[in-house]
Structure formats: C-alpha cells, structure tokens
Design a protein around this nucleic acid. Structure first.
Length: 471
RNA sequence: GUCCCCAUCGUCUAGCCCGGCCCAGGACACCGCCCUUUCACGGCGAUAACGCGGGUUCAAAUCCCGCUGGGGACGCCA
C-alpha cells in the first residue's frame, strides 16, 4: 500500500436540498481514497447559485456527513466567500483575450437554442458576441470563454481511461454570469487549483464537463488534476436515481431506522468491490479501497440488500448504543416522555431480546412499545383466534402458578409452562400463543419466556388477568 | 439531433487488463427443506447470467470490429 500525503480530494455538493444518496457515495469514495492514501479530504460548498442555495441545506449536508462519520480535514469552504479569487481569474482571461463579454440575454439564448434543436442542429452558442467591439448599452454582460474549434481534448480518467473529445463539440461557455457570480465549470477549476486538489473524484455526469475544464486549466496556465469519474447510481427503472424511486435522502434513512455503518457498507459496494467480500468495517474499507477496483457500469440501487446489511449491523451493535437510539425514537413518538425514562439496565435487557428480529431501529422501537406502554391494545384478529373460551381455565391455572414463581426468570418460567402443558396433554403453542397475545397484543414477539421475564411479574399477571376478563 | 460512457444471474458483483484452472464463483431477493412456542434468526439446498453477429486463436466471458440495448451530457444549474 502506497501512501502519498500530497493527495488532496474534495466533496463539493451544492446546497440546494437534501444530502442525496448519490452525493454520499461520491463523498464516501473521496473520503476512502483520502484516508487510504493518507491525504486530505476537503468539504467545499458550491453555493454560487444564489437563487437555489440555502443555509438550511448546508446544515443538512454537514449533519449528514457527521452522522455518516465522513470527517473532513478542511472546510467547509463556501464559494460565495471566494468571489475575489474568481473575479481575478476572469479578469486574467479577459485581459489575455481568452474570454469576452456576451450581451445576449438568457431569453434570447433560450430562443436560439430551441430553434437550433428544432432545426436539428446542435444547441451550441452561436458566438454572436465574439466579434463585438463595443458594449451594448443598457445591458450587463456575462463573460464567455473563447474556445477553440481546432484539435481535440483528451481526458485521462483513472477509471475510464483516455476519453477523446473534439474541441469542435465544445462551445464558448459562460464563466461569469451577468450577476457577477462564476458558473460551475469555472469556479470548480479555480477552486480545485487554489485548493491544490490532486484528484477530482466525482459522478459520471460530469465527464462531459471535463474537457471544458481542462481547457480552462490550460488557458489559466495551470496543471489539471487527475480525474476519476464514478458510475452513476440508478433507480430500479435504470434511470438516474431520484426521489420518485423512494428514499434517497440521508435524513430519510435516519428516520427509517438505519445505522450509518450499514449505509456506508452498502454504498461502498455499489460500484466498488474487493473480491467476494460483502461486509466491511470502515477500517477495512479504508484499507482495501482503490480506484482500480471501481467498476465502469452504472449500478441499480437495491434497498433490500441495504436492509439486510442494516440487520447485520444491528446484530453487531453494542446493545447499550442501540438502547440509546431506540429510546430516542420512543421519545419522538411520545411513548416515553422526558424525565420518565425506564431503568436503563432493564431497557437494555429489553433491547437485547428484540435485536435478533429487527432489521431497523424503527422495527425495534415498535416491538418495544408493548413493554413500555401502560396498557396493551389487543389486535382484534389475534384476540379472536387465540383468546377463546376454551383457553380460559388454562390461563387461570397459569396465573395461579405464575404467582408462585420465584425468581421470575426464564428457566423457572419454562418449568411452569412445561409442567402445565404436560398435565393437560397439549402442545406448548396452545398455551404460549394466548399468553403472547395477552402480553404483547399480537402474535409476533420474541420467545415467550424472554417476553415474560422482561415484562416482569406484576405486569405479566395484570395483563393475563385483563385478557381473561375480556374473553 | 449531437457528443460521451457502459454491457456477466431479477439486483450488487468476482473473473476480463496478463485468453485455457469458468458447461462462470460469492452476496441480496425469490423458492424448497430443516430448526421451532409465534414471527424472525440460523442451517442446508434449488432456480438463475457471459445481449447479438462476425472475426483473431488449437482455445474467448476474457482480444478486435459491427450491431443492439441502456445510461449520461448538451443551462447566465451544479
């Protein structure tokens, strides 16, 4: 494994909404690359679009990154704080005759673009303002980069190999808007240079932007960084993953009861692999990560595999940590109120018996409710099926015997049940199911002896007696 | 319309660069069986893929070409 402390990578989201799964994957690969190479990981907020950027969104990004454990070494930097740097660079290009003012309005451009498309021509800027010698009165110009029609630009991508673009295909892109803000393609170049970014690792959807950016590096007299374009994440219909495919925001996964390590592990294996290994701790991920093992083909997001991983990590998790997380969810639902928390050790015991059948924290929370709530609501179907008149004497007998059990623990409870079942010549299920319904309200729960032990003598007797009355 | 990219089980993927060990391996999901006080967990097993057509070669999932299919980009968004 080689290390190179000159490696500097960045994650550069635009703060225009949620922290998206696709963004997280990009951030993750950058982070893994930086950590593996002993380099720096920088967080940069691309907020030059004043109309869409919000502080709220920056907060969501920062919180999401923290939740995921993707820590950064520098930043978060905001592009809007670097306006002087962009202006200087624009000036330089204009002075050098490599950029020019464009007085066409967005509306005019839009019309011409539509016409070109309708005529079957490429919707390229027609370079109308290239030959202008004087300003157009009453209009504030944007600044365009003067691109060449000659030759080709080759992107040497660490994942794709060499990708060749005919310069003829590229048009005179706007580098500074009439409002004075730089556009994306220009700001990235200036930022990546001035922040000494060594490797630009980003989504595939930027591959087409790369030749333009390379030309800007050249015009500015800078050495371009190395590029690596990650394959996209697609939805089940194989189009770019978006909201309509289901949960795509990190916050949604938090709310759904996912653990960050599950999301990290899942996303890492989407487009990257290390032999047949499926389960990776963050440390293993950092140790094994290499751009060479990143695939080229886009991959479909599969929520079921993520769920499986979440189940796996819940099994692995420290019960005390889970207890804390589940408790928070119970508070959020109003099942537990602040200051009236259950005994922590007891609650941890409860969590332990719920772990095995929980795929999410939310499932665990829901399963915990009957143990916490003062009263249990009996599911009608379950009641009709299991709390019937013929089990009445059985339950009464059980109550009488349970009163004598001491200590009230799994092994002792099992003895009582087994004895009663043997005497009556019935199967354990015949007794266990009615009790389960009486205690939890439904037909699904952990093993009946675990349930009874955790629920405790008082609550157990109370609930069975309440059920008897309802029959 | 133009440009760019991609192509192994339903899905994520190994193998491909350096052809033979691959009538293709692992994982998720699905199905079956076992375990069992419910539901799960777990265990065991099964079904399932090299898009198509040409080459090159003694030999191709692996190399080359074409086709088809899919994706992405063409903004005073990023």
């Amino acid at each position: 494994m080689s290390t190179n402390s000159n490696v500097r990578v960045r994650f550069a989201p635009s703060p225009t909404g949620a922290l998206h799964i696709g963004g997280v994957r990009t951030a993750l690969f950058n982070w893994l690359f930086a950590r593996h190479q002993n380099g720096k990981f920088i967080l940069r907020i691309e907020d030059t679009d004043q109309t869409r950027s919000t502080d709220e969104s920056i907060r969501i990004i920062v919180d999401g990154m923290k939740w995921l454990g993707l820590d950064w070494d520098e930043g978060p930097f905001r592009q809007t704080e670097r306006m002087d740097t962009y202006r200087e660079h624009v000036e330089r290009l204009v002075k050098a005759g490599k950029a020019y003012h464009c007085y066409c309005t967005p509306e005019e451009l839009e019309m011409r673009r539509k016409k070109a498309l309708a005529d079957g021509r490429p919707p390229k800027y027609d370079r109308k303002c290239r030959s202008l010698t004087a300003p157009v009165p009453g209009r504030t110009p944007a600044v365009r980069f003067l691109s060449s029609d000659e030759g080709q630009t080759i992107v040497r991508d660490l994942i794709r190999g060499a990708v060749t673009f005919e310069n003829q295909q590229l048009d005179d892109l706007i580098i500074q808007r009439s409002d004075g803000f730089p556009t994306y393609n220009f700001a990235v170049v200036v930022d990546d240079v001035t922040m000494k970014i060594s490797h630009v690792i980003r989504g595939d959807d930027h591959l087409n932007n790369t030749p333009r950016q390379i030309q800007l590096y050249q015009a500015l007299g800078y050495e371009p960084p190395q590029f690596a374009h990650l394959p996209m994440i697609l939805g089940s219909d194989k189009t770019k993953l978006s909201k309509r495919h289901g949960a795509t925001a990190v916050t949604e996964y938090i709310d759904l009861g996912y653990l960050p390590e599950a999301l990290i592990n899942y996303l890492a294996r989407l487009g990257w692999s290390h032999g047949d290994q499926e389960i990776f701790s963050p440390a293993e991920l950092i140790g094994s990560f290499a751009l060479g093992n990143v695939g080229k083909a886009p991959s479909v997001f599969n929520a079921e595999k993520l769920l499986w991983l979440n189940h796996h990590y819940i099994q692995q998790a420290n019960p005390d940590r889970l207890a804390g997380l589940v408790l928070e969810l119970l508070k959020k639902d109003g099942v537990v109120s602040e200051g009236k928390e259950p005994d922590r050790e007891w609650f941890k015991g409860l969590v332990k018996i719920l772990i095995e059948r929980s795929h999410t924290l939310v499932e665990m929370k829901n399963a915990a409710v009957p143990f916490i709530a003062g009263e249990v609501v009996l599911d009608e179907k379950a009641k009709a099926k299991h709390l019937t008149a013929d089990v009445l004497p059985l339950l009464s007998e059980l109550v009488a015997r349970l009163k004598l059990v001491e200590p009230f623990v799994h092994a002792e409870l099992e003895k009582v049940f087994n004895a009663l079942v043997a005497e009556k010549g019935i199967k354990l299920g015949k007794l266990a199911q009615p009790v389960r319904v009486a205690l939890t309200g439904g037909t699904v729960s952990p093993g009946i002896f675990e349930v009874i032990e955790v629920m405790g003598k008082e609550k157990t007797l109370q609930r069975i007696e309440a059920a008897i009355k309802q029959i």
